[in-house]
């Protein structure tokens, strides 16, 4: 499980060379929006040679390929699929495009939901077994809906909640939309907290300087870790199932949540 998914342009050698220094849990190398139409081949070649030479245990590497309606979709997969990387981010994902992609690869798929129709039909996409995570693309969505992107992000409250619920129902990771103001780290934190409260498990990022804030918000807090430890300690001595801790009933789902939280804390070296 990753907290942070950092987009880096696939046509920039300097960015690729440094992809492992920003502390992002996952990197999304972008061949789509950050690469101009006339340099698609160039970027694909660069990524091919880079990933042929350098392999990474951490961070996990994903490639955002071009969407299925473009002539580059098949080229991207045909050239790059044999390389070592975790999976694909599929832009403008639909049920059909996910199925098409999954026929060409065994790698993990993150469905990027960024059109009104994909949000209407989101559960059908999330329920596909090939989809490991969904990523909300709020900028394209709000543009398509002809609504303003606001600082408060009130306009995406519903879609965040909808995706969070559907992802939880299908045990799929929900990655929130990126925050686009490069320099406003205070508002970034608010945006992360809001997404987390609604049920997002992670956040996508478009600038490396955002990674620390995102990782912090989506990590267990010191208080949560201490509480989880107490729950698990008491659970060891109570074999009957439910028990009382600080006046609250603790049962199996809460114990499981505590176990997950401790596992996360270990993974992020917070213990």
């Amino acid at each position: 499980m990753s907290r942070s998914f950092l987009f880096l342009p696939g046509n920039n050698p300097g960015s690729l060379q440094n992809l492992d220094i920003f502390n992002a849990d996952s990197i999304i190398i972008d061949l789509e929006d950050s690469v101009t139409f006339d340099t698609k081949d160039e970027a694909r070649d660069l990524v091919y040679h880079f990933l042929s030479k350098f392999m990474f245990k951490t961070p996990s590497i994903y490639l955002r390929i071009n969407d299925i309606s473009t002539p580059f979709f098949n080229d991207d997969i045909d050239v790059l699929d044999s390389l070592e990387f975790k999976g694909y981010v599929l832009p403008k994902a639909t049920k059909e495009s996910v199925i098409s992609l999954s026929k060409k690869t065994d790698k993990s798929i993150i469905a990027l939901l960024e059109t009104p129709m994909s949000l209407v039909k989101s559960e059908a996409i999330i329920s596909l077994k090939q989809v490991d995570a969904v990523l909300l693309g709020a900028e394209d969505l709000t543009t398509a809906m002809k609504i303003e992107s606001t600082v408060s992000r009130q306009e995406i409250t519903y879609v965040r909640s909808k995706l969070a619920l559907e992802c939880a129902a299908h045990e799929t990771l929900f990655i929130d939309t990126p925050y686009t103001d490069k320099d406003d780290l205070a508002q970034l934190k608010n945006d992360c907290l809001q997404a987390k409260i609604l049920g997002a498990n992670a956040k996508s990022i478009i600038h490396p300087n955002h990674v620390d804030v995102v990782n912090t918000v989506f990590s267990p807090t010191t208080h949560q870790i201490a509480n989880a430890k107490r729950i698990l300690k008491k659970a060891e001595t109570h074999q009957k199932g439910a028990f009382n801790l600080d006046g609250k009933m603790i049962d199996k789902p809460i114990i499981n949540r505590a176990k997950n939280l401790i596992a996360q804390a270990k993974k992020y070296q917070l213990l």
Partner: peptide
């Protein structure tokens, strides 16, 4: 600097 490499070095 706001360059991510510089920010990391400073940190």
């Amino acid at each position: 600097t706001t360059n991510p490499i510089g920010v990391k070095i400073a940190k």
